[in-house]
Nucleic acid binder design. Sequence first.
DNA 1: TTTACTAGTGTGTAAGATACACTTTAAAAT
DNA 2: ATTTTAAAGTGTATCTTACACACTAGTAAA
Lengths: 245, 245
Amino acid sequence: MKIINNLEEAEDINMQLNYYNKEDQVLLAVDCIIFGFDKENLKILLIKRNFEPEKGKWSLIGGFLKKNENLDQAAVRVLHTLTGLGDIYMEQLYTFSKIDRDPGQRTISVSYYALIDVESHKFDGIQIDSARWFELNEAPDLIFDHNEMIKRAMARLRRRALTKPIGFELLPEKFTMRQLQNLYESILDKKLDKRNFINKINSLDVLIKLDEKDMTVSRKGAYLYVFDKEKYNKKVEEDGFTFKI
Amino acid sequence: MKIINNLEEAEDINMQLNYYNKEDQVLLAVDCIIFGFDKENLKILLIKRNFEPEKGKWSLIGGFLKKNENLDQAAVRVLHTLTGLGDIYMEQLYTFSKIDRDPGQRTISVSYYALIDVESHKFDGIQIDSARWFELNEAPDLIFDHNEMIKRAMARLRRRALTKPIGFELLPEKFTMRQLQNLYESILDKKLDKRNFINKINSLDVLIKLDEKDMTVSRKGAYLYVFDKEKYNKKVEEDGFTFKI
DNA sequence: TTTACTAGTGTGTAAGATACACTTTAAAAT
DNA sequence: ATTTTAAAGTGTATCTTACACACTAGTAAA
Protein backbone atom coordinates (compact mmCIF):
# COMPACT_ATOMS: atom_id res chain seq x y z
CA MET A 1 0.00 0.00 0.00
CA LYS A 2 1.11 3.48 -0.82
CA ILE A 3 1.71 5.83 2.06
CA ILE A 4 1.36 9.52 1.45
CA ASN A 5 3.78 11.35 3.71
CA ASN A 6 3.24 15.01 3.26
CA LEU A 7 1.05 17.71 1.97
CA GLU A 8 3.10 18.51 -1.13
CA GLU A 9 2.83 15.00 -2.44
CA ALA A 10 -0.87 15.02 -1.70
CA GLU A 11 -1.22 18.24 -3.69
CA ASP A 12 0.57 16.73 -6.65
CA ILE A 13 -1.78 13.82 -6.61
CA ASN A 14 -4.80 16.05 -6.29
CA MET A 15 -3.66 18.09 -9.26
CA GLN A 16 -3.00 14.99 -11.25
CA LEU A 17 -6.40 13.55 -10.41
CA ASN A 18 -8.47 16.62 -10.80
CA TYR A 19 -7.06 18.72 -13.57
CA TYR A 20 -9.71 19.05 -16.21
CA ASN A 21 -8.36 17.11 -19.15
CA LYS A 22 -10.06 17.32 -22.55
CA GLU A 23 -8.39 14.05 -23.52
CA ASP A 24 -10.54 12.14 -21.07
CA GLN A 25 -13.89 13.36 -22.33
CA VAL A 26 -16.39 10.66 -23.24
CA LEU A 27 -19.82 10.35 -24.80
CA LEU A 28 -22.61 9.79 -22.33
CA ALA A 29 -25.49 7.71 -23.61
CA VAL A 30 -28.90 7.36 -21.99
CA ASP A 31 -30.70 4.04 -22.44
CA CYS A 32 -34.29 3.45 -21.38
CA ILE A 33 -35.78 0.20 -20.17
CA ILE A 34 -39.49 0.76 -20.79
CA PHE A 35 -41.78 -1.55 -18.87
CA GLY A 36 -45.39 -1.79 -19.91
CA PHE A 37 -48.39 -3.66 -18.54
CA ASP A 38 -51.49 -4.59 -20.54
CA LYS A 39 -53.66 -5.74 -17.57
CA GLU A 40 -52.29 -9.25 -18.02
CA ASN A 41 -48.54 -9.31 -18.50
CA LEU A 42 -45.46 -7.22 -17.98
CA LYS A 43 -43.76 -6.29 -21.25
CA ILE A 44 -40.79 -4.40 -22.48
CA LEU A 45 -40.48 -2.03 -25.42
CA LEU A 46 -37.63 -2.64 -27.87
CA ILE A 47 -36.64 -1.15 -31.20
CA LYS A 48 -34.91 -2.65 -34.17
CA ARG A 49 -31.80 -0.62 -34.91
CA ASN A 50 -31.70 0.83 -38.39
CA PHE A 51 -28.21 2.30 -38.15
CA GLU A 52 -24.71 1.01 -37.51
CA PRO A 53 -23.22 -0.47 -35.48
CA GLU A 54 -25.37 -3.57 -34.97
CA LYS A 55 -27.93 -2.45 -37.54
CA GLY A 56 -30.92 -4.79 -37.68
CA LYS A 57 -30.55 -6.00 -34.10
CA TRP A 58 -32.96 -5.28 -31.29
CA SER A 59 -32.03 -2.80 -28.60
CA LEU A 60 -33.34 -0.53 -25.90
CA ILE A 61 -34.18 2.96 -26.99
CA GLY A 62 -31.40 5.39 -26.31
CA GLY A 63 -29.70 8.61 -27.21
CA PHE A 64 -26.91 10.89 -26.10
CA LEU A 65 -26.74 13.48 -23.37
CA LYS A 66 -26.52 16.99 -24.78
CA LYS A 67 -24.66 19.96 -23.35
CA ASN A 68 -27.78 21.86 -22.38
CA GLU A 69 -29.59 19.21 -20.35
CA ASN A 70 -29.13 16.96 -17.34
CA LEU A 71 -29.56 13.19 -17.43
CA ASP A 72 -33.18 13.16 -16.29
CA GLN A 73 -34.03 15.61 -19.05
CA ALA A 74 -32.12 13.56 -21.60
CA ALA A 75 -34.01 10.42 -20.60
CA VAL A 76 -37.34 12.23 -20.92
CA ARG A 77 -36.32 13.64 -24.32
CA VAL A 78 -35.17 10.28 -25.67
CA LEU A 79 -38.37 8.61 -24.56
CA HIS A 80 -40.50 11.38 -25.97
CA THR A 81 -38.71 11.63 -29.30
CA LEU A 82 -38.83 7.91 -30.00
CA THR A 83 -42.26 7.06 -28.69
CA GLY A 84 -44.22 10.27 -28.37
CA LEU A 85 -44.70 9.51 -24.71
CA GLY A 86 -44.60 12.22 -22.08
CA ASP A 87 -45.38 12.53 -18.37
CA ILE A 88 -44.03 9.08 -17.60
CA TYR A 89 -42.54 7.68 -14.41
CA MET A 90 -38.78 7.34 -14.89
CA GLU A 91 -35.97 6.57 -12.50
CA GLN A 92 -32.22 6.41 -12.96
CA LEU A 93 -30.94 2.87 -12.62
CA TYR A 94 -27.20 2.38 -13.06
CA THR A 95 -24.27 3.60 -15.12
CA PHE A 96 -22.55 1.09 -17.39
CA SER A 97 -18.96 1.69 -18.41
CA LYS A 98 -17.22 -1.41 -19.74
CA ILE A 99 -14.49 -0.11 -22.04
CA ASP A 100 -15.67 -1.82 -25.22
CA ARG A 101 -19.39 -2.00 -24.45
CA ASP A 102 -20.09 -0.03 -27.63
CA PRO A 103 -17.67 -1.09 -30.37
CA GLY A 104 -18.33 2.11 -32.32
CA GLN A 105 -16.86 4.45 -29.74
CA ARG A 106 -16.01 4.66 -26.04
CA THR A 107 -19.41 5.33 -24.56
CA ILE A 108 -20.67 5.31 -21.01
CA SER A 109 -24.38 4.62 -20.64
CA VAL A 110 -26.65 5.82 -17.89
CA SER A 111 -29.73 3.61 -17.81
CA TYR A 112 -33.21 4.69 -16.82
CA TYR A 113 -36.31 2.61 -16.44
CA ALA A 114 -39.79 3.82 -17.27
CA LEU A 115 -43.22 2.48 -16.31
CA ILE A 116 -46.26 2.89 -18.52
CA ASP A 117 -49.73 1.52 -19.02
CA VAL A 118 -49.67 -0.07 -22.47
CA GLU A 119 -53.37 0.41 -23.28
CA SER A 120 -53.61 4.13 -22.62
CA HIS A 121 -50.58 4.77 -24.81
CA LYS A 122 -51.44 2.50 -27.70
CA PHE A 123 -51.43 5.12 -30.42
CA ASP A 124 -48.61 7.29 -29.29
CA GLY A 125 -46.24 6.18 -32.00
CA ILE A 126 -44.90 3.04 -30.42
CA GLN A 127 -46.47 0.89 -33.10
CA ILE A 128 -44.04 2.12 -35.73
CA ASP A 129 -42.56 -0.84 -37.56
CA SER A 130 -39.27 -0.68 -35.74
CA ALA A 131 -40.66 -0.74 -32.19
CA ARG A 132 -42.47 -3.60 -30.50
CA TRP A 133 -43.63 -4.80 -27.11
CA PHE A 134 -42.12 -8.11 -26.00
CA GLU A 135 -43.14 -10.43 -23.21
CA LEU A 136 -40.33 -10.41 -20.70
CA ASN A 137 -39.31 -14.01 -21.30
CA GLU A 138 -39.70 -13.76 -25.07
CA ALA A 139 -37.46 -10.75 -25.59
CA PRO A 140 -34.75 -11.30 -28.19
CA ASP A 141 -31.05 -11.06 -27.49
CA LEU A 142 -30.05 -7.41 -27.39
CA ILE A 143 -26.99 -5.45 -28.44
CA PHE A 144 -24.14 -4.36 -26.18
CA ASP A 145 -24.90 -4.77 -22.49
CA HIS A 146 -28.63 -4.14 -22.89
CA ASN A 147 -29.56 -7.60 -21.60
CA GLU A 148 -27.75 -6.84 -18.39
CA MET A 149 -29.56 -3.52 -18.16
CA ILE A 150 -32.92 -5.25 -18.33
CA LYS A 151 -31.89 -7.77 -15.71
CA ARG A 152 -30.87 -4.99 -13.37
CA ALA A 153 -34.01 -2.98 -14.11
CA MET A 154 -36.16 -6.00 -13.36
CA ALA A 155 -34.43 -6.49 -10.01
CA ARG A 156 -34.92 -2.83 -9.15
CA LEU A 157 -38.56 -2.88 -10.18
CA ARG A 158 -39.15 -5.89 -7.96
CA ARG A 159 -37.63 -4.23 -4.94
CA ARG A 160 -39.33 -0.88 -5.51
CA ALA A 161 -42.77 -2.29 -6.21
CA LEU A 162 -42.72 -3.98 -2.80
CA THR A 163 -42.11 -0.75 -0.90
CA LYS A 164 -43.31 2.13 -3.08
CA PRO A 165 -46.63 2.57 -4.88
CA ILE A 166 -45.00 2.65 -8.30
CA GLY A 167 -47.08 -0.26 -9.57
CA PHE A 168 -49.97 2.11 -10.25
CA GLU A 169 -47.84 3.77 -12.94
CA LEU A 170 -48.29 0.56 -14.93
CA LEU A 171 -52.08 0.52 -14.61
CA PRO A 172 -54.80 2.73 -16.04
CA GLU A 173 -56.22 5.25 -13.61
CA LYS A 174 -59.14 2.92 -12.87
CA PHE A 175 -58.31 -0.73 -12.35
CA THR A 176 -59.74 -3.86 -10.77
CA MET A 177 -58.26 -5.81 -7.89
CA ARG A 178 -57.62 -8.68 -10.24
CA GLN A 179 -55.56 -6.41 -12.52
CA LEU A 180 -53.57 -5.12 -9.59
CA GLN A 181 -52.93 -8.69 -8.50
CA ASN A 182 -51.96 -9.70 -12.05
CA LEU A 183 -49.49 -6.84 -12.04
CA TYR A 184 -47.82 -7.93 -8.82
CA GLU A 185 -47.79 -11.54 -9.93
CA SER A 186 -46.00 -10.45 -13.13
CA ILE A 187 -43.50 -8.29 -11.33
CA LEU A 188 -42.73 -10.84 -8.64
CA ASP A 189 -43.07 -13.76 -11.05
CA LYS A 190 -45.14 -15.85 -8.65
CA LYS A 191 -48.77 -16.58 -7.87
CA LEU A 192 -50.35 -14.79 -4.94
CA ASP A 193 -53.37 -15.79 -2.88
CA LYS A 194 -56.38 -13.70 -3.86
CA ARG A 195 -57.82 -13.19 -0.38
CA ASN A 196 -54.51 -12.44 1.26
CA PHE A 197 -53.64 -10.02 -1.49
CA ILE A 198 -56.90 -8.10 -1.22
CA ASN A 199 -56.69 -8.07 2.57
CA LYS A 200 -53.21 -6.65 2.43
CA ILE A 201 -54.06 -4.00 -0.14
CA ASN A 202 -57.13 -2.95 1.83
CA SER A 203 -55.15 -2.74 5.04
CA LEU A 204 -52.83 -0.24 3.33
CA ASP A 205 -55.88 1.99 2.95
CA VAL A 206 -54.72 4.01 -0.06
CA LEU A 207 -57.27 2.93 -2.68
CA ILE A 208 -60.66 4.44 -3.41
CA LYS A 209 -63.34 1.92 -4.38
CA LEU A 210 -65.54 3.40 -7.09
CA ASP A 211 -69.29 2.86 -7.61
CA GLU A 212 -68.42 1.59 -11.03
CA LYS A 213 -67.74 -1.85 -12.44
CA ASP A 214 -65.62 -3.21 -15.24
CA MET A 215 -68.07 -5.55 -17.03
CA THR A 216 -65.71 -6.68 -19.77
CA VAL A 217 -64.07 -9.57 -17.95
CA SER A 218 -66.90 -11.37 -16.17
CA ARG A 219 -70.68 -11.69 -15.93
CA LYS A 220 -70.65 -10.34 -12.42
CA GLY A 221 -68.37 -7.43 -13.16
CA ALA A 222 -65.52 -6.22 -10.98
CA TYR A 223 -65.39 -3.02 -8.99
CA LEU A 224 -62.96 -0.37 -10.17
CA TYR A 225 -60.46 1.32 -7.86
CA VAL A 226 -58.21 4.36 -8.07
CA PHE A 227 -55.02 5.00 -6.16
CA ASP A 228 -55.45 7.89 -3.72
CA LYS A 229 -52.12 9.65 -4.12
CA GLU A 230 -52.97 12.54 -1.80
CA LYS A 231 -53.95 10.17 0.99
CA TYR A 232 -50.78 8.17 0.45
CA ASN A 233 -48.56 11.27 0.57
CA LYS A 234 -50.31 12.50 3.69
CA LYS A 235 -49.84 9.16 5.45
CA VAL A 236 -46.16 9.08 4.54
CA GLU A 237 -45.60 12.59 5.82
CA GLU A 238 -47.68 12.42 8.96
CA ASP A 239 -47.22 8.85 10.18
CA GLY A 240 -44.01 7.79 8.42
CA PHE A 241 -46.20 5.22 6.69
CA THR A 242 -44.51 2.78 4.31
CA PHE A 243 -46.34 1.04 1.52
CA LYS A 244 -45.50 -2.63 1.92
CA ILE A 245 -46.73 -5.56 -0.17
CA MET B 1 -47.84 14.37 -28.01
CA LYS B 2 -45.87 13.66 -31.10
CA ILE B 3 -47.04 10.81 -33.28
CA ILE B 4 -44.51 9.04 -35.45
CA ASN B 5 -46.22 7.84 -38.58
CA ASN B 6 -43.75 5.91 -40.61
CA LEU B 7 -40.45 4.16 -40.68
CA GLU B 8 -38.58 6.91 -42.54
CA GLU B 9 -39.35 9.50 -39.93
CA ALA B 10 -38.37 7.03 -37.24
CA GLU B 11 -35.05 6.47 -38.98
CA ASP B 12 -34.38 10.18 -39.11
CA ILE B 13 -35.00 10.44 -35.43
CA ASN B 14 -32.81 7.46 -34.71
CA MET B 15 -29.99 8.95 -36.72
CA GLN B 16 -30.41 12.25 -35.03
CA LEU B 17 -30.39 10.68 -31.60
CA ASN B 18 -27.63 8.23 -32.08
CA TYR B 19 -25.04 9.74 -34.33
CA TYR B 20 -21.81 9.91 -32.39
CA ASN B 21 -21.22 13.59 -31.87
CA LYS B 22 -17.89 14.84 -30.55
CA GLU B 23 -19.57 18.09 -29.53
CA ASP B 24 -21.52 16.32 -26.84
CA GLN B 25 -18.57 14.75 -25.08
CA VAL B 26 -18.30 15.45 -21.36
CA LEU B 27 -15.91 14.83 -18.50
CA LEU B 28 -16.91 12.01 -16.20
CA ALA B 29 -15.89 12.42 -12.58
CA VAL B 30 -15.91 9.74 -9.93
CA ASP B 31 -16.60 10.83 -6.35
CA CYS B 32 -16.25 8.54 -3.34
CA ILE B 33 -18.27 8.66 -0.15
CA ILE B 34 -16.01 6.82 2.29
CA PHE B 35 -17.76 5.55 5.41
CA GLY B 36 -15.63 4.45 8.32
CA PHE B 37 -16.44 2.96 11.70
CA ASP B 38 -14.21 3.13 14.78
CA LYS B 39 -16.17 0.62 16.93
CA GLU B 40 -18.23 3.50 18.28
CA ASN B 41 -19.42 5.84 15.56
CA LEU B 42 -19.94 6.02 11.85
CA LYS B 43 -17.69 8.58 10.17
CA ILE B 44 -16.97 9.97 6.78
CA LEU B 45 -13.65 10.84 5.17
CA LEU B 46 -13.29 14.29 3.61
CA ILE B 47 -10.44 16.26 2.11
CA LYS B 48 -9.72 19.94 1.99
CA ARG B 49 -9.35 20.99 -1.63
CA ASN B 50 -6.01 22.59 -2.46
CA PHE B 51 -6.85 23.51 -6.04
CA GLU B 52 -9.44 25.59 -7.84
CA PRO B 53 -12.35 25.80 -8.10
CA GLU B 54 -13.50 25.99 -4.47
CA LYS B 55 -9.94 25.74 -3.13
CA GLY B 56 -9.86 25.48 0.66
CA LYS B 57 -13.31 23.96 0.96
CA TRP B 58 -14.05 20.43 2.10
CA SER B 59 -15.13 17.83 -0.42
CA LEU B 60 -15.39 14.14 -1.11
CA ILE B 61 -12.38 12.58 -2.73
CA GLY B 62 -12.73 12.32 -6.46
CA GLY B 63 -11.03 12.11 -9.81
CA PHE B 64 -11.79 11.65 -13.48
CA LEU B 65 -12.52 8.56 -15.51
CA LYS B 66 -9.68 7.75 -17.90
CA LYS B 67 -9.95 6.22 -21.36
CA ASN B 68 -8.40 2.91 -20.37
CA GLU B 69 -10.57 2.01 -17.38
CA ASN B 70 -14.18 1.44 -16.44
CA LEU B 71 -15.94 3.27 -13.61
CA ASP B 72 -15.35 0.61 -10.96
CA GLN B 73 -11.65 0.70 -11.76
CA ALA B 74 -11.61 4.50 -11.67
CA ALA B 75 -13.25 4.48 -8.24
CA VAL B 76 -10.71 1.97 -6.94
CA ARG B 77 -7.85 4.02 -8.40
CA VAL B 78 -9.08 7.31 -6.95
CA LEU B 79 -9.50 5.76 -3.52
CA HIS B 80 -6.10 4.11 -3.67
CA THR B 81 -4.23 7.13 -4.95
CA LEU B 82 -5.62 9.50 -2.35
CA THR B 83 -5.66 7.25 0.69
CA GLY B 84 -3.40 4.31 -0.01
CA LEU B 85 -6.35 2.02 0.61
CA GLY B 86 -6.92 -1.08 -1.45
CA ASP B 87 -9.19 -4.14 -1.29
CA ILE B 88 -12.14 -2.11 -0.05
CA TYR B 89 -15.87 -2.68 -0.45
CA MET B 90 -17.22 -0.20 -3.00
CA GLU B 91 -20.54 0.12 -4.75
CA GLN B 92 -21.78 2.48 -7.42
CA LEU B 93 -24.44 4.79 -6.05
CA TYR B 94 -25.88 7.32 -8.48
CA THR B 95 -24.88 9.62 -11.33
CA PHE B 96 -25.21 13.36 -10.81
CA SER B 97 -25.60 15.61 -13.81
CA LYS B 98 -26.95 19.05 -12.96
CA ILE B 99 -25.66 21.33 -15.69
CA ASP B 100 -23.72 23.73 -13.47
CA ARG B 101 -22.90 21.33 -10.65
CA ASP B 102 -19.19 22.04 -11.22
CA PRO B 103 -18.71 25.70 -12.14
CA GLY B 104 -15.29 24.99 -13.66
CA GLN B 105 -16.56 22.80 -16.47
CA ARG B 106 -19.55 20.68 -17.48
CA THR B 107 -18.91 17.53 -15.49
CA ILE B 108 -21.05 14.52 -14.76
CA SER B 109 -20.19 12.68 -11.57
CA VAL B 110 -20.68 9.01 -10.84
CA SER B 111 -20.68 8.51 -7.09
CA TYR B 112 -19.44 5.43 -5.28
CA TYR B 113 -19.56 4.64 -1.60
CA ALA B 114 -16.91 2.70 0.25
CA LEU B 115 -16.93 0.96 3.63
CA ILE B 116 -13.84 0.59 5.79
CA ASP B 117 -12.79 -0.19 9.33
CA VAL B 118 -11.08 2.98 10.56
CA GLU B 119 -8.74 1.30 13.06
CA SER B 120 -7.16 -1.23 10.72
CA HIS B 121 -6.39 1.49 8.18
CA LYS B 122 -5.12 4.14 10.52
CA PHE B 123 -1.70 4.57 8.97
CA ASP B 124 -2.53 4.21 5.34
CA GLY B 125 -2.01 7.84 4.51
CA ILE B 126 -5.41 9.16 5.41
CA GLN B 127 -3.97 11.26 8.18
CA ILE B 128 -2.34 13.65 5.74
CA ASP B 129 -3.15 17.19 6.71
CA SER B 130 -5.75 17.63 4.05
CA ALA B 131 -7.85 14.56 4.91
CA ARG B 132 -9.92 14.01 8.04
CA TRP B 133 -12.59 11.77 9.47
CA PHE B 134 -15.78 13.56 10.46
CA GLU B 135 -18.68 12.42 12.58
CA LEU B 136 -21.67 12.22 10.30
CA ASN B 137 -23.54 15.04 11.95
CA GLU B 138 -20.46 17.23 12.34
CA ALA B 139 -19.36 17.17 8.71
CA PRO B 140 -18.83 20.62 7.22
CA ASP B 141 -20.70 21.98 4.26
CA LEU B 142 -19.26 20.50 1.07
CA ILE B 143 -18.67 21.78 -2.43
CA PHE B 144 -20.92 21.21 -5.43
CA ASP B 145 -23.59 18.58 -4.83
CA HIS B 146 -21.46 16.55 -2.44
CA ASN B 147 -23.87 17.03 0.46
CA GLU B 148 -26.59 15.45 -1.61
CA MET B 149 -24.27 12.58 -2.48
CA ILE B 150 -23.69 11.83 1.19
CA LYS B 151 -27.39 11.96 1.91
CA ARG B 152 -28.07 9.47 -0.85
CA ALA B 153 -25.18 7.24 0.22
CA MET B 154 -26.48 7.19 3.76
CA ALA B 155 -29.92 6.13 2.58
CA ARG B 156 -28.42 3.38 0.44
CA LEU B 157 -26.22 2.16 3.28
CA ARG B 158 -29.23 1.97 5.57
CA ARG B 159 -31.21 -0.12 3.14
CA ARG B 160 -28.31 -2.39 2.22
CA ALA B 161 -27.16 -3.00 5.77
CA LEU B 162 -30.61 -4.36 6.62
CA THR B 163 -30.55 -7.02 3.93
CA LYS B 164 -26.92 -7.73 3.05
CA PRO B 165 -24.01 -8.49 5.37
CA ILE B 166 -22.06 -5.41 4.32
CA GLY B 167 -21.84 -4.11 7.88
CA PHE B 168 -18.92 -6.44 8.52
CA GLU B 169 -16.88 -4.41 6.02
CA LEU B 170 -16.92 -1.63 8.61
CA LEU B 171 -15.67 -3.81 11.45
CA PRO B 172 -12.32 -5.47 12.13
CA GLU B 173 -12.24 -9.19 11.38
CA LYS B 174 -12.87 -9.98 15.03
CA PHE B 175 -15.51 -7.94 16.80
CA THR B 176 -17.78 -8.08 19.81
CA MET B 177 -21.56 -8.19 19.81
CA ARG B 178 -21.59 -4.74 21.37
CA GLN B 179 -19.51 -3.36 18.49
CA LEU B 180 -21.82 -4.95 15.95
CA GLN B 181 -24.79 -3.44 17.74
CA ASN B 182 -23.06 -0.03 17.92
CA LEU B 183 -22.55 -0.26 14.19
CA TYR B 184 -26.19 -0.94 13.44
CA GLU B 185 -27.29 1.73 15.88
CA SER B 186 -25.04 4.22 14.05
CA ILE B 187 -26.25 3.19 10.63
CA LEU B 188 -29.93 3.16 11.55
CA ASP B 189 -29.55 6.12 13.90
CA LYS B 190 -31.60 4.56 16.67
CA LYS B 191 -31.12 2.52 19.81
CA LEU B 192 -31.72 -1.21 19.62
CA ASP B 193 -32.60 -3.63 22.41
CA LYS B 194 -29.54 -5.70 23.35
CA ARG B 195 -31.30 -9.01 23.86
CA ASN B 196 -33.45 -8.75 20.77
CA PHE B 197 -30.46 -7.76 18.70
CA ILE B 198 -28.34 -10.69 19.87
CA ASN B 199 -31.24 -13.11 19.44
CA LYS B 200 -31.75 -11.93 15.90
CA ILE B 201 -28.07 -12.08 14.97
CA ASN B 202 -27.76 -15.56 16.44
CA SER B 203 -30.83 -16.78 14.61
CA LEU B 204 -29.14 -15.74 11.33
CA ASP B 205 -26.45 -18.28 12.19
CA VAL B 206 -23.59 -16.74 10.19
CA LEU B 207 -21.19 -15.77 12.98
CA ILE B 208 -18.50 -17.87 14.59
CA LYS B 209 -18.04 -17.29 18.32
CA LEU B 210 -14.35 -17.46 19.16
CA ASP B 211 -12.76 -18.79 22.36
CA GLU B 212 -11.24 -15.38 22.78
CA LYS B 213 -12.30 -12.27 24.61
CA ASP B 214 -11.80 -8.57 24.12
CA MET B 215 -10.72 -7.44 27.61
CA THR B 216 -10.25 -3.78 26.78
CA VAL B 217 -13.80 -2.60 27.36
CA SER B 218 -14.96 -4.31 30.52
CA ARG B 219 -13.87 -6.31 33.55
CA LYS B 220 -15.71 -9.36 32.39
CA GLY B 221 -14.49 -9.16 28.81
CA ALA B 222 -16.60 -9.74 25.72
CA TYR B 223 -16.42 -12.71 23.37
CA LEU B 224 -15.10 -12.04 19.90
CA TYR B 225 -16.92 -13.14 16.77
CA VAL B 226 -16.03 -13.43 13.10
CA PHE B 227 -18.40 -13.35 10.15
CA ASP B 228 -18.49 -16.74 8.42
CA LYS B 229 -18.59 -15.66 4.79
CA GLU B 230 -18.44 -19.19 3.37
CA LYS B 231 -21.39 -20.29 5.48
CA TYR B 232 -23.33 -17.20 4.45
CA ASN B 233 -22.65 -17.77 0.74
CA LYS B 234 -23.62 -21.41 1.04
CA LYS B 235 -26.89 -20.56 2.77
CA VAL B 236 -27.74 -17.98 0.12
CA GLU B 237 -27.03 -20.40 -2.70
CA GLU B 238 -28.65 -23.49 -1.24
CA ASP B 239 -31.64 -22.15 0.67
CA GLY B 240 -32.18 -18.76 -0.90
CA PHE B 241 -31.39 -17.38 2.54
CA THR B 242 -31.59 -13.63 3.05
CA PHE B 243 -29.71 -11.81 5.76
CA LYS B 244 -32.28 -9.66 7.53
CA ILE B 245 -31.82 -7.36 10.51
C1' DT C 1 -84.73 -21.28 -15.74
C1' DT C 2 -80.35 -23.05 -15.93
C1' DT C 3 -75.59 -22.67 -16.83
C1' DA C 4 -71.20 -20.71 -16.68
C1' DC C 5 -67.84 -17.72 -15.07
C1' DT C 6 -65.34 -14.69 -12.30
C1' DA C 7 -65.91 -11.57 -8.15
C1' DG C 8 -65.97 -11.29 -3.49
C1' DT C 9 -65.42 -12.53 1.28
C1' DG C 10 -63.32 -14.27 6.90
C1' DT C 11 -60.98 -17.00 10.22
C1' DG C 12 -57.77 -19.96 12.52
C1' DT C 13 -52.87 -20.94 12.95
C1' DA C 14 -48.02 -20.30 12.68
C1' DA C 15 -44.16 -17.36 12.65
C1' DG C 16 -41.84 -13.40 13.76
C1' DA C 17 -41.28 -8.98 16.31
C1' DT C 18 -41.11 -6.65 20.47
C1' DA C 19 -40.96 -5.52 25.37
C1' DC C 20 -38.70 -6.30 29.40
C1' DA C 21 -34.77 -7.14 34.25
C1' DC C 22 -31.80 -9.85 36.60
C1' DT C 23 -27.36 -12.64 37.05
C1' DT C 24 -22.47 -13.37 35.83
C1' DT C 25 -17.79 -12.29 35.51
C1' DA C 26 -13.27 -10.46 36.45
C1' DA C 27 -10.51 -6.56 37.47
C1' DA C 28 -9.71 -2.80 40.61
C1' DA C 29 -10.15 -0.75 44.98
C1' DT C 30 -10.29 -1.22 49.81
C1' DA D 1 -9.45 -11.44 51.45
C1' DT D 2 -13.52 -8.84 50.54
C1' DT D 3 -16.16 -5.46 48.33
C1' DT D 4 -17.12 -2.61 44.55
C1' DT D 5 -17.80 -1.61 39.82
C1' DA D 6 -19.03 -1.94 35.05
C1' DA D 7 -20.32 -4.13 31.18
C1' DA D 8 -21.55 -8.93 29.38
C1' DG D 9 -24.78 -12.31 28.97
C1' DT D 10 -29.23 -14.51 29.06
C1' DG D 11 -35.20 -16.17 28.37
C1' DT D 12 -40.03 -15.63 28.13
C1' DA D 13 -44.61 -13.82 27.52
C1' DT D 14 -47.29 -11.01 24.48
C1' DC D 15 -48.51 -8.77 20.48
C1' DT D 16 -48.46 -8.31 15.54
C1' DT D 17 -48.15 -9.88 11.07
C1' DA D 18 -48.02 -13.57 7.49
C1' DC D 19 -50.13 -17.42 5.57
C1' DA D 20 -53.24 -21.18 4.44
C1' DC D 21 -57.57 -22.18 2.98
C1' DA D 22 -63.20 -22.88 0.31
C1' DC D 23 -67.55 -21.37 -0.36
C1' DT D 24 -71.26 -17.84 -1.84
C1' DA D 25 -72.75 -13.88 -4.91
C1' DG D 26 -73.96 -11.76 -9.04
C1' DT D 27 -74.81 -11.25 -13.85
C1' DA D 28 -75.14 -12.42 -18.82
C1' DA D 29 -75.76 -15.87 -22.09
C1' DA D 30 -77.74 -20.09 -23.45
